[in-house]
Design a protein around this nucleic acid. Structure first.
Length: 875
RNA sequence: GGGCGCGUAGCUCAGCGGGAGAGCGCUCGCUUCACACGCGAGAGGUCGCAGGUUCGAAACCUGCCGCGCCCACCA
């Protein structure tokens, strides 16, 4: 084994081998219990970013552990066609060739997207493989492949038959850049600094006027009414009258509607039904007409006066303002005026509420009840739990889901129309109208929201709508791992549709992780230059390093996850540490299954290591069972580095260099511990653990080895106590050396006092301790022996260390050390004294706490006397 | 407007009733026979602020201040 672990050589080899040998393939049905996770399908044209890397790390940790625990572990990978995102990417590429999508025509364009997908798509799949993800690649799916397309149609038809999908003309969230409608969930609201203008409309009859306020003054060109509150005395007389539009002379009716807030602004609202959802509702209630003033690209259309036609919405805003001012109608301008504006989640353009013709909607409220019930009765659990509240609140406030997208890339809506206006909805392309038998059918030109197919993912990938063995065996999935940003967009819809279409929740546990950010908590963005490219990190430090650092950072407490290159470097160092521990342990290991010697041949460090290893296992199991990945990583790091390497191996080196029998015993027990630790670590760091594990020659792959079982009998409190005492002795000597600048070359002759019960163990290890501390001879005497002459005595638990003064110590340094310790002792004594003097404490605190405090006083008192004596000796 | 999370060592975070921890960074010393991607020692903290509960609070409660996020038909 080389002294440095080299992931660049190891990782590609194992990635290939694991897949070739089919370890990750799962069968259904199986004698083993099922454990299934689906990957949140990334966009085909996407590249792996750290957010994906985090999700995949978590999923792989769960899946690999489940596989080792004996589950039929199935992790289904795949990609999403991602309607808008992909279409936009391909459109941009075409534009660079000077081609417009509309010139190309629908069919040719869609073909181009497919070939784009074949050529450039799927890179992300290769990147996921590089992470070591143990997906069942034989089950890889794409949301637009044949089977999943069938599932989409089946779902649409079933929803439609149940009356949960309908067609209607409503205002939709229109993105003028992508030229498509969006669902409410795809609109991101953001505070912007805008303006609030107040202007006046003159009454048609008489000379009176009414003032209205707006943040979007250009929409007044499409005003068809003014609304006031029905109980508002100020305007009661005006309801039913009209005002005259200043630019085109239209008569606009003043109506009463409860929606109006009397206290806001002037208490009168301009009503633009075709361009504002509230106004649309008011118009529905009061019968005001709709007047559309925008083209699809948010330029003013021919419905507006000639002077404004063709202006973009922002130009129009200024133009209308100026025109109002010119007519003396502008009353007030407030600027900046902060308010919330919806933006497209893909291109970030401002959303334009617009009537985009007949659209298909899912009546989600009809599905929400069952989803809420599943949460409340515990079939669906959230980790962290705090997401349950927002999830239920969201379900309680659902509006219908617009699923029509005016795009070409996606699942075409399975609805056909005949010239008489009948609608035929079917899973197979119909030959005749279901209403009148007409053969003149045209399919709806729109495609479905990309999330319509994503919501089917946990069961469409298992073969739904067919009743496949996979579906009955692996559904519901064990867990779903995702970021909170798509909780509503995706997770909620999977739950609702799964309950309705399949009859059960799609998964039991929703594991929600934060957004990966940089170390200052900023979002990673190209413009900030703080993007960490996971593939670059894998190249530089290895996949295990990246995975470990992500797991280590993914604590439950905070909302987001800070990641830095230094953190990944630390992961790399850890992999190397493990590698070197293995080098040491396996140097004399003959191979085969490690067999620890019988208990009576175990040394103290060995019993201690077994005990610590058991504690580590318990901690790792508990942490992973509860999705506390950081805690699991931390426990393993602590055990391997601080316990196994810093103490265990250091103390065992004597035996590793000892007689054949000693070496054999030590190697076997250390190898036994190491091998089990590798298995515990394998789900988090698959590559380095596999590479080391191969040295044992006990199986084909650690990936299909058995998860270590708990050995409670190995917990050894006595060994832990003894070793802690020993650590104190070693540390005391090292501290002394450092404080007095005693070079290691200067061998010390010391005396150690310990209770009789500890003497044998200490004697066994004295040589090793000597090596660790530069001590040549170590006399061992009872812990209560009086202090010798001419030595410095350092107190440790139940004993002391005595180091001769002659030739070793720096008197000033020693005085400083003693004084400092004395100050600490005094402070602690005073604290404890006050506490014990408090009657409340003595009577109300737990008795053992009081006793511990009294013991402390006794102990500190003795130490204080000794410190004084030594200070006196030094003069 | 409603809700959530977070303010603990220079940085990132654990701790969540018995008087404070890790990793990284920093300082000092080490070619100690696995590892300098290392070993040893050390410095560094009125645990955001103010009240309250308690014998005892970083931890529990209330209020305030700061930072971040989610939801909402704030004309």
């Amino acid at each position: 084994m080389p002294p440095q672990y080299d992931p660049t050589e190891v990782e590609p080899r194992w990635t290939r081998t694991w897949i070739e040998r089919g370890y990750f393939h799962a069968e259904a049905p199986s004698d083993r219990p099922p454990y299934c996770i689906v990957i949140p399908p990334p966009n085909v044209t996407g590249r792996l970013h750290v957010g994906h890397a985090l999700g995949r790390t978590i999923e792989d940790t769960l899946i690999r552990r489940a596989r080792m625990q004996g589950f039929e572990a199935c992790w289904i990978p795949g990609t999403d066609h991602a309607g808008i995102a992909t279409q936009v990417v391909v459109e941009r590429a075409l534009r660079e060739e000077g081609i417009d999508r509309r010139e190309l025509g629908r069919e040719a364009f869609v073909e181009r997207v497919w070939s784009w997908k074949e050529q450039y798509g799927g890179e992300i799949v290769e990147q996921i493989k590089r992470m070591g993800a143990s997906c069942d690649w034989e089950r890889e799916r794409f949301t637009m492949d044949e089977g999943l397309s069938r599932a989409v149609r089946a779902a649409f038809v079933r929803f439609h038959e149940a009356g949960l999908i309908y067609r209607g003309e409503r205002l939709v969230n229109w993105c003028p850049t992508d030229r498509t409608g969006l669902s409410d969930s795809e609109v991101e609201h953001e505070e912007v600094e805008g303006e609030l203008l107040t202007f006046r409309y003159f009454l048609t009859e008489g000379s009176g006027s009414i003032q209205v306020a707006t943040t979007r003054v250009e929409t007044m060109l499409g005003d068809t009414g003014i609304a006031v509150h029905p109980g508002d005395d100020r305007y009661a007389a005006l309801v039913g009258q009209t005002v005259t539009h200043p630019f085109d002379g239209r008569q606009i009716l003043i109506v009463a509607d409860h929606h109006v807030d009397r206290d806001f602004g002037t208490g009168a609202v301009k009503v633009t039904p075709a361009h504002d959802p509230n106004d649309f509702d008011i118009a529905q209630r009061t019968g005001l007409p709709l007047m559309n003033i925008f083209e699809a690209d948010a330029r003013l259309n021919d419905a507006v006066p000639a002077e404004f036609r063709g202006l973009g919405r922002y130009e129009a805003r200024t133009a209308v303002r100026d025109a109002l001012e010119a007519k003396g109608l502008l009353v007030k301008e407030e600027r900046p005026y902060v308010h919330s504006v919806g933006h497209c989640y893909r291109c970030h353009s401002e959303i334009e509420p617009w009537i985009a013709g007949l659209q298909w909607f899912v009546k989600v409220s009809g599905l929400a009840g069952a989803a809420k019930e599943a949460v409340l009765d515990g079939r669906l659990r959230f980790t962290p739990e705090r997401w349950q509240g927002p999830f239920v609140a969201w379900l309680d406030n659902l509006r219908d889901w617009n699923i029509s997208r005016q795009l070409w890339w996606g699942h075409r809506i399975p609805a056909w129309y005949c010239p008489d206006g009948h609608v035929t909805v079917a899973t197979e392309d119909p030959t005749a109208c279901a209403g009148c038998g007409s053969t003149e059918l045209t399919q709806d030109p729109d495609v479905l929201d990309t999330w319509f197919s994503s919501q089917l993912w946990p069961y469409s990938t298992l073969g739904w709508p067919d009743d496949t063995p996979e579906l009955s065996f692996f559904y519901p999935n064990a867990a779903l791992v995702t970021g909170y940003e798509i909780l509503y967009l995706w997770v909620a819809r999977m739950v609702m549709s799964g309950l309705f279409l399949v009859g059960d929740v799609p998964f039991h546990d929703v594991v929600i992780h934060g957004l990966v950010r940089d170390q200052q908590g900023r979002k990673m963005s190209k413009s900030l230059g703080n993007v960490i490219d996971p593939i670059e990190m894998i190249d530089r430090y290895g996949a295990d390093a990246l995975r470990f650092s992500l797991a280590r950072a993914a604590t439950g407490g905070q909302q987001d996850i800070p990641l830095s290159e230094e953190g990944i470097e630390a992961g790399r160092n850890f992999a190397n540490k493990l590698w070197n521990a293995a080098r040491l342990v396996l140097r004399a290991f003959p191979g085969g299954a490690p067999t620890p010697p019988p208990p009576d041949r175990l040394t103290l460090p060995e019993r201690w290591l077994l005990s610590r290893h058991q504690a580590c296992l318990v901690a790792v199991d508990a942490a992973l069972d509860e999705y506390r990945f950081a805690d699991a990583a931390l426990a393993l790091h602590r055990f391997v580095w601080s316990e196994l390497c810093d103490w265990g191996l250091e103390l065992e080196k004597g035996r590793l260099h000892g007689t054949d029998a000693e070496r054999s015993d030590a190697t076997q027990v250390l190898a036994w511990i190491l091998e089990r630790t590798l298995r515990l670590l394998h789900p988090t760091m698959p590559f380095v653990t596999e590479e080391i594990w191969q040295r044992f020659g006990i199986g084909d792959s650690i990936a299909i080895a058995t998860w270590p079982s708990s050995r409670p009998q190995q917990a050894d409190a006595a060994a832990e106590a003894s070793l802690t005492a020993l650590q104190e002795i070693v540390t005391a000597i090292r501290q002394f050396r450092a404080q007095h600048h005693v070079p290691t070359a200067h061998r010390l002759e010391i005396t150690v006092g310990v209770p009789d019960s500890e003497q044998a163990a200490l004697r066994d290890l004295s040589e090793r301790i000597g090596k660790l501390t530069g001590v040549s001879t170590m006399a061992i005497i009872p812990g209560d022996s009086p202090k010798a002459e001419g030595v410095v005595r350092i107190g440790v638990a139940d004993g002391f260390v005595e180091i001769p003064i002659a030739g070793t110590i720096d008197l000033d340094a020693e005085r400083a050390r003693l004084s400092k310790r004395l100050a600490e002792v005094d402070r602690d004594l005073e604290r404890a004294g006050t506490k014990l003097a408090n009657e409340g404490f003595r009577t109300k605190a737990a008795p053992e706490v009081v006793v511990a405090e009294q013991d402390k006083v006794t102990r500190l008192g003795v130490e204080r006397d000794q410190l004084f004596a030594q200070l006196g000796e030094l003069g």
